[in-house]
Write a protein that binds this DNA or RNA. Structure first.
Lengths: 149, 149
DNA sequence: AAATGTCATTTGCCATGTCAACTGATAGTG
DNA sequence: CACTATCAGTTGACATGGCAAATGACATTT
């Protein structure tokens, strides 16, 4: 029935792998009462704070609308603060947010990395890194081209 | 500020690449009034019909609840039919669904594959395939272990 | 036959994500 | 100063996804 190309097979494997990996991350983060999306938002904010919502959205590859709602939840839980300044809002972690992220961060990165470390050696990881860099950068230019047309 | 491991970098690139790729697919499929999730469901149904909802859910890596709602939408649009048979429902494509999938399928696979074909040569794709196979299969065993514990 | 168990599916509740329409603040122009 | 363009953010409508509790259909046990 099937006659899938090598590219299509690779794509399928990659999509499913990422889905499994996200599922495992969400399971792991549940002990901190965080979702993976929230964890990534907090980590990105920590690295770039204070940051505007627009920049945060770009960094996380989501739309402004999605960020707006997510930040509302994070704010209502006291993990971040939004400072209206001029016409933009600047996002920072609260002490509570910083503390939570500090607790969750090491084990979460450990968890993610283990999916690679347990089956790939250093050479393979370096190979994969090079391949993903090419693919990722190509996909970026494609997205940009599309949004212009 | 950053001190990310190679594994973490690869993971980030892969997640973002898949997000970009899904976005491009959704843009492409909009002309057929389909989302990527719907396209994948229809394609999986076509390859295995008649199939039960539970098996379909497993094949697409989603929960039974998600499938149930998606199939309701697809059914109300007349793309699939659900035959209650015994205690399970067997899903098939309708003529309309088959026809739509036949129109969308080639260009969608083309679109996906081009993200790989435009930057990787045959050797690189073969390498990537081997690496993803390892990662994918490892992630499966991890998910299974987790669900038992 | 009635009680219980099992399994597939449905449904409520919620988080995330998109898109498009809207609001608000500011800047630039006549 | 009024008029308009622009840009950040919000919000409504919707699709997808997870989890957990309910439902429905059957099988098994007593």
């Amino acid at each position: 029935m099937e006659d899938l190309s090598l590219s299509t097979l690779v794509w399928l494997r990659m999509v499913r792998f990422v889905e499994n990996s996200n599922q495992l991350s969400n399971d792991h983060l549940r002990q901190f009462d965080l979702t993976l999306a929230q964890f990534e938002a907090l980590a990105h904010i920590r690295n770039f704070q204070p940051i505007t919502q627009t920049d945060l959205a770009r960094g996380l590859t989501v739309t402004g609308g999605g960020i707006s709602r997510m930040l509302s939840r994070l704010e209502s839980e006291g993990l971040i603060s939004r400072q209206q300044d001029w016409k933009t809002k600047h996002i920072s972690l609260t002490d509570k947010g910083t503390e939570l992220l500090e607790r969750a961060y090491p084990s979460q990165l450990e968890q993610q990395a283990s999916l690679f470390d347990e089956v790939l050696d250093e050479d393979e990881k370096t190979q994969l890194h090079a391949l993903m860099k090419k693919l990722y950068e190509h996909s970026i230019t494609r997205c940009e081209d599309d949004s212009q047309s």
